[in-house]
Amino acid sequence: MNINKQQAQKIAFILFRLMSFSVVGVLLIILGLIIYRGIGTISWDFLSQAPEQGMTKGGIYPAIIGTLYLILGSSLFSFPIGIMSGIFMSEYAANNRLIVMIRIMTNSLSGVPSVVFGLFGMSLFVNTLGFGDSILAGSLTLGLLSLPLVIRTTEESLKAVDYAYREGSLALGASKLQTIRNVVFPMAFPNIISGLILSIGRVSGETAPILFTVAAYFLPKLPSSIFDQVMALPYHLYVISTSGTDIEASRDIAYGTALVLVTIVLILNILANLLRRYFAKKVKTN
């Protein structure tokens, strides 16, 4: 059968559409399964109690709190440094060799596998600096891991601000730093925040970097200082679905934990998208 070029186009586009929807379908299957099987486990007790009976009963409260601590700790480290670095890259960096070098390094750092960050964190923070398996060591490791994302978001958000605003401010006699602080940065802020929110999502789900720097297998007690170990949601899910005392008996808990993790990511994603839309509107009306 001979097909003409219009028919070829039709077939190709239908195929592309089918493939696009099958990708969406995979996403929906994953989400659907986890919501369907996990929703029954979610209750106030599940969210507020410690695990019991070899982690086949009870809740995941210590893991939720541990993940919150890690998010907080890593953000305290990566946000200030990452935002400053992003400002430098966008506003100060001329297009010379040094900057090309820094950019390549940033890109490369974002390609470094998370387990390598785990090795590095274990070697530097846990052993060399003597923090031990602790919130501090884990937060720093996760912070380093999320740096490239924070830097890139900041840089891109700042670059998206029209150059005319900078020139206007400079023409009025403001210094470069004043221009950045009072004009450019506030305009880019919602977009930066939406990027930071996504980086929190990434941090909350990472398992490999916390394996050897902070995560505890089972620890019903909450941490009392930054030198304590904590449980964390992703590690908890890994443990109870592969090496728990009774894998079958803890399946429901596993689905519940997965649902909590996915919900966190879902909420953060929606939040980031809303902020981005708000930003887009704001710039348009300007």
């Binding site: 696009s20 990708v23 969406v24 995979v26 996403l27 994953i30 399964l33 986890i34 998370s114 996504l198 999502g201 990434r202 909350s204 789900g205 990472e206 398992t207 490999a208 992703p234 590690y235 899910l237 890994y238 679905s241 592969t242 399946r251 596993a254 997965a258 993790l261 996915v262 990511v265 879902l266 953060l268 994603n269 998208n273």
Partner: peptide, 22 residues
């Protein structure tokens, strides 16, 4: 499509692993 693809990128690796397992 775009936000769904982003969501696909945002789902933690351990959840994918769990999905693979079950």
């Amino acid at each position: 499509l775009k936000p769904l693809i982003e969501l696909l990128a945002g789902i933690p690796a351990v959840v994918y692993g769990f999905f693979g397992l079950v």
